[in-house]
Design a protein around this nucleic acid. Structure first.
Lengths: 210, 210
DNA sequence: AAAAACATACCCGTTAGGGGGTATTTTTTT
DNA sequence: AAAAAAATACCCCCTAACGGGTATGTTTTT
């Protein structure tokens, strides 16, 4: 019997997955939650074999939750289930230790296949994902984790609507430092215009709202 | 037998809805599509009684699709199914003639209830929605349609990443006109900073990407 | 017909963000 | 120990996007 936990902020989708798994003899859903913090608690409590988690969720995103889970219970198999067909998100998820990556525009059957596959010790990634490029960050052609720690933090603050001077205050930096980081990010990411960085922050980052 | 069409860009959610409706004797799903244009075609072809549609979809958003559908086939019952818990979106959808409004974080059972209800000639709106405020735009406390036609179009272009000068070229206006509209919108919407308008455009508009 | 809202377009001035540099210190990787 | 990457901070210069006005013609509403 495979014990499965699900984290996803759209209840309707959880219900759909449940309908699918209900008729599977060898799978039992041990819990369903709507945010990342609740997921971490649930895993510690119920100790599922497989975790299916969204990335963009309230309170804690799925990548962070994955790290917490695998630190506590390293044998848990984590599968990402998200709408981000984004190389960066895939890389981060793989780096965090995920064993699978599903897209919401794929058929629901894939969920079943993926759960069984990772439980057997394998992996399951959506066909559209280039696992090679995402998992080996050393390759020349890869855009990889591109941004450094500071840069990512600053990007997050940009996504929260902060100005450079506000960010400078928060991080105890000078304004020019923040602006330097902005410029470096724009160059690294190959962006052009003014609002582009904000657009990028809003569209890419998985953890805003609530 | 209630004939239902579904439009939704996440295949997994469609599959979930299908699992739910499959066991209903009096409901048959006549088609499922992943974008707004395909929905309009599907409705003309299969003439369903009830249409369940997402708002944010590729090619054409659900609000526009709803208008097209009801122009051609006024007796079709349209239900919005979306993650936007947004007064403006609800208002626009009601104005377009929708008979129901569901949220994706609600239980999937609601879909079933809503389909049956609207088919009987009724309406079904999620409990969290203030139908009164949304359907009568005259009320004093409502923020209503606030923005004028030109302003909305400019806001859409801002959401697409266009600069003021680019927008000016597209609309054959002077740059100062576009900037004037920007300022008026910022004032009307009570926004402050630089990126705020872009944030608003990205977060509010339902029809970007693809 | 009068009033209100909208669309157009200009003025002046300020500033945050960005393009393109350089430099120093710390951390990480090799 | 040496090299590379990251973090800090400054320089100059330029422009888009503001804030806050005014003005004029066109719709729309009352």
């Amino acid at each position: 019997m495979i014990r499965v936990a699900i984290a996803e902020d759209h209840q309707s989708l959880i219900d759909g997955i449940n309908l699918l798994l209900k008729y599977e003899e060898d799978i039992s859903v041990v819990g369903m939650v709507n945010d990342g913090e609740a997921l971490v608690n649930l895993v510690n409590l119920k100790q599922p074999h497989v975790v299916l988690t969204d990335i963009k969720m309230p309170k804690m995103d799925g990548i962070t939750a994955c790290k917490y889970i695998l630190k506590e219970r390293p044998h848990t198999k984590v599968i990402a289930f998200t709408m981000f067909e984004d190389q960066g998100a895939v890389s981060e998820m793989i780096a965090a230790g995920a064993k699978g990556y599903l897209l919401k525009n794929s058929p629901l059957e894939d969920v079943l296949t993926a759960i069984k596959e990772v439980h057997k010790g394998g992996t399951f990634f959506d066909k559209t994902i280039d696992v090679e490029a995402a998992s080996n960050p050393s390759g020349q052609g890869a855009k990889k984790s591109l941004l450094s720690k500071s840069e990512r933090e600053i990007l997050r603050l940009i996504g929260e609507g902060k100005s450079s001077s506000e960010i400078a205050e928060i991080r105890f930096n000078s304004v020019s430092t923040i602006e330097k980081h902005r410029k470096n990010m724009i160059r690294k990411l190959g962006l052009s215009g003014k609002g582009e960085l904000l657009r990028y922050a809003l569209e890419t980052k998985y953890n805003f709202e609530s």
